[in-house]
Computed example of a mutant assay.
Amino acid sequence: MQRHPQEAAINRLVLWNVDLTLVDVAIVTRDAYAEAFRFVTGRPLVKLVPPMGRPDSEIVFETLAVNGVQAEDDHLPKFLSALAVAFADRRGRLAKEGRMMPGAKDALKAVSRLDGVIQTVLTGTIKSNAVHKLKAFGLDKHVDFALGGYGEEVYPKATLLQVAQSRAKQRLGTPFTAANTVVIGDSTRDVQAAKIGGAAMIGVASGRSMAAELRDAGADVVLPDLSNASEVVAAVASLTAPAGRAVL
Rank of each mutant, 00 (worst) to 15 (best):
V154F: 00
L226C: 09
G103L: 13
K109Q: 13
V25Q: 03
M52T: 06
K105F: 01
A229K: 15
Q192C: 01
T181C: 10
T120S: 15
L248W: 09
R30H: 13
F61H: 15
E153G: 00
A199F: 09
K135S: 13
L80Y: 04
V221Y: 09
G207K: 11
Q192W: 01
V111I: 14
G42W: 08
L108W: 11
T125K: 15
Y150M: 10
R99K: 14
K157N: 03
V66Q: 05
S227Q: 13
L214Y: 05
K47P: 00
V131D: 08
E62A: 14
V14Y: 10
S206H: 07
D106G: 01
M100W: 00
L13V: 05
V233G: 12
N67S: 09
V233S: 12
A82D: 02
A229M: 07
V154T: 11
T240C: 13
D220Q: 03
N180C: 12
D190P: 06
Q70P: 00
R215W: 12
A246R: 15
A36Y: 11
R99Q: 13
G68K: 05
A237M: 01
K78D: 13
K109T: 13
V85H: 04
P175S: 14
R30C: 00
G138N: 05
V182G: 08
D186M: 04
Y155A: 12
V121W: 01
A71E: 15
L94M: 09
N180D: 10
L83Q: 06
P5M: 09
T177V: 08
M210Y: 05
G149E: 04
H75E: 04
A237I: 00
K47G: 00
K157H: 03
A246I: 15
M201C: 14
S209E: 03
R43P: 08
P5L: 13
A86N: 04
L94Q: 12
W16N: 05
G138R: 05
F176D: 01
D56K: 13
V222Y: 07
R113N: 03
G53H: 06
A235S: 14
G148R: 05
N67E: 12
V163S: 05
A146K: 10
D31C: 03
D19I: 01
D74H: 12
A237L: 00
I126H: 01
Q192A: 15
L13N: 08
D220F: 02
L45T: 01
V222P: 09
L147K: 02
A65F: 06
A164Y: 09
I184Q: 08
H4T: 11
G138I: 08
G218D: 04
D89C: 03
R93S: 11
M1Q: 09
E153H: 09
E213S: 14
I184G: 07
V183K: 03
D19T: 01
L160Q: 07
I202R: 13
Q162C: 11
V111G: 06
I184V: 15
I27M: 04
R12P: 02
N11S: 15
A84D: 14
A8L: 02
A205L: 09
K105L: 10
V23T: 14
G138K: 06
P51L: 07
K195P: 00
K195A: 12
F145E: 09
T181L: 05
A178S: 14
L239Y: 10
Y150L: 08
A86T: 02
P50T: 10
P5K: 08
S238F: 00
R208S: 12
Q170M: 11
R38C: 11
P242V: 04
V183M: 15
D144Q: 07
L22A: 07
